[in-house]
Design a protein around this nucleic acid. Structure first.
Lengths: 124, 124
DNA sequence: TAAAGCGCTTGACCGTTCATAGCGCTATGT
DNA sequence: ACATAGCGCTATGAACGGTCAAGCGCTTTA
């Protein structure tokens, strides 16, 4: 867990592998959202976890939080430049998933090795 | 958690966000490893967790396990084609990390927004 | 007047991850 | 010849972190 000097790749992985982070970023790439809206778009995340994630991402400078009014509560979460830059990562994951992932017999995803080559597909 | 049809991106994220998976893949991209060797290279992972991850990744077809001898035990874990293909994802993460991540005041990583523009960086 | 929605927070659960120890056995060093 | 270290794991119990369900004060919609 301890390493002599700062390794950007390692640090990046540490952040991105946290549960829900990639889903949150992917959703936010589609545009700014409020808390509950974001929660619904991500799907299945519980508010406590979302709150913790957003706070961390904000402190890191990946996400910025804008409070439009306190009462009634109205807030907006947006990606910063660094956050938007993650679209490259999401893009790679997207490409890889489309190319290699199929749904297996038991419903869980499986890799299908060498199928028909790259087929241009539209993004969600 | 339930979704009407199979979404490759979502499924890919589900797999890759599992703790240690990206670290394992990244390490395995450097070449095949035995269990303890892999454990040491990844750094800080618990053997029980590693065993579970490897089993899942193998069942998914990302990693293949080769047993050279049962006694003395000698095993090798290698990436399949689908696994190797993840180097694109790792590459993106690498690029993003190098571009945006710095070590903050409290030791935790922080994003440094608009610095000097894109600078060609060599990959690990 | 009632109900639904906003952005969260709280507290009790429970599954995952952790540190640590150990198995049977061989290759190495002294 | 003997001790030690190494292999690939598995077994424990404790610690951590995510989950569920409910609810706060308040406004807007029905």
């Amino acid at each position: 867990m301890e390493q002599r000097e700062f390794c950007p790749v390692h640090a990046a992985i540490q952040v991105l592998q946290e549960k829900w982070v990639l889903h949150i970023v992917r959703t936010l790439l589609e545009g700014p959202r409020g808390f509950n809206d974001l929660s619904r778009s991500v799907g299945g995340i519980n508010p406590a976890t979302l709150a913790v994630r957003l706070e961390r991402l904000e402190r890191m400078g990946l996400v910025s939080k804008t409070v439009h009014s306190y009462m009634p509560p109205r807030t907006t979460y947006t990606l910063t430049d660094a956050g938007v830059a993650l679209h490259g990562v999401i893009g790679s994951i997207d490409a890889w998933g489309r190319r290699y992932l199929r749904v297996g017999a038991e419903g869980e995803p499986v890799c299908s090795g060498a199928l028909s080559a790259t087929k241009p597909t539209a993004t969600t």
